[in-house]
């Protein structure tokens, strides 16, 4: 980051900008805004002339920004999480949206990131909400999981060494669209209907998905052991041998020929479909992954 500018004019600008931010984010709403307006925004450390100028204009001139910005952000989240909005109902969704905006708001300059920021914030709250069905947080994460597959950038890096037979001792380079996730409910098997009220099975499940050459979403179910092996390879760049050894130890499973054969088959299948691009050359910086890759995989217990 550059050095933040300082000085009285910048303090003034910051104070004025905080007034707008308050007008947009506060849950005190129009009433709170009218109260602040009546007091010439005392408490915002504005120069007196600025407080007078703001209060000399109808409060609606500030409130219009509140309406527009909240509308933009609410729609941006709802468009990426339409199933969550349906399952919560508009009233509860709006309540959580308002709480998110006041407490956290967004830090990204990319509008499509707002839904991710909201989801990360709201997930533990949904889990703790007794009026929200237990599968809903999984469903929300799955909506973003799918979206992330659709919008992921493919990896085309000159440092990539493409080999026909994947070496067991080197990290595998998955296509940039590959995502892996664990869910407690089989949300990935629900029909892709926004207004569906179907209840998913309470069934721990692993899903690997990627985008094919025609930009279509593809997914496959994984066993718990396969999920752990592939998660080690995708999220932590573990070579195949290490990923298998560690996953088997974690699952208290022996490294049997069936495990080796099954894993090899999945990898060969993914390579054939273009979801594996080759193997990384050692000691070469890799492209940064999706910032939400790990959160999409699983949400750590609070």
């Amino acid at each position: 980051m550059s050095t933040p500018p300082t000085g009285p004019e910048l303090d003034r600008l910051r104070a004025l900008q905080r007034v707008v931010q308050y007008a947009v984010r506060s849950n005190a709403g129009r009433t709170g805004l009218e109260a602040a307006h009546a007091k010439r925004f005392a408490g915002f450390e504005l120069p007196p002339q600025d407080g007078e100028t703001l209060s000399s204009q109808p409060v609606g001139r500030l409130h219009v920004y509140r309406k527009m910005i909240r509308g933009t952000l609410r729609s941006a989240i709802g468009n990426e999480l339409p199933k969550l909005r349906h399952r919560l109902g508009y009233e509860r969704y709006d309540r959580y949206f308002a709480a998110f905006l006041e407490a956290e708001a967004t830090r990204s300059r990319v509008l499509r990131d707002v839904a991710y920021e909201f989801a990360v914030w709201v997930h533990p709250r949904l889990v703790a909400d007794p009026e929200v069905a237990a599968f809903v947080p999984d469903l929300m994460r799955f909506e973003l999981f799918e979206f992330d597959v659709y919008t992921g950038r493919r990896v085309l890096d000159p440092s990539l060494e493409v080999v026909e037979e994947l070496p067991a001792d080197r990290p595998v380079a998955f296509d940039g669209t590959v995502r892996i996730a664990r869910f407690d409910h089989a949300v990935h098997r629900l029909k892709d209907i926004v207004t569906s009220d179907a209840i998913p099975m309470n069934e721990p499940t692993g899903v690997l998905a990627y985008r094919d050459g025609d930009n279509r979403y593809r997914q496959m179910d994984l066993t718990p052991l396969a999920t752990s092996i592939l998660a080690g390879m995708i999220l932590d760049d573990k070579p195949l041998a290490t990923a298998v050894r560690e996953a088997c130890a974690a699952h208290d499973a022996a490294i049997t020929p069936e495990v080796i054969e099954g894993t090899s088959q999945v990898l060969a299948d993914l390579a054939e479909r273009g979801a594996i691009r080759g193997a990384w050359v050692h000691d070469v910086p890799k492209p940064p992954p999706s910032p939400y890759l790990r959160w999409l995989y699983e949400v750590a217990a609070a």
Partner: peptide
Amino acid sequence: CFCGVDGKILHDLLPMPQSLGSARH
């Protein structure tokens, strides 16, 4: 315009004060 403050982005085009200091900034 400005788009946010204190690390928060509001995703709109928000006005600046029409002053010399603001213009120089």
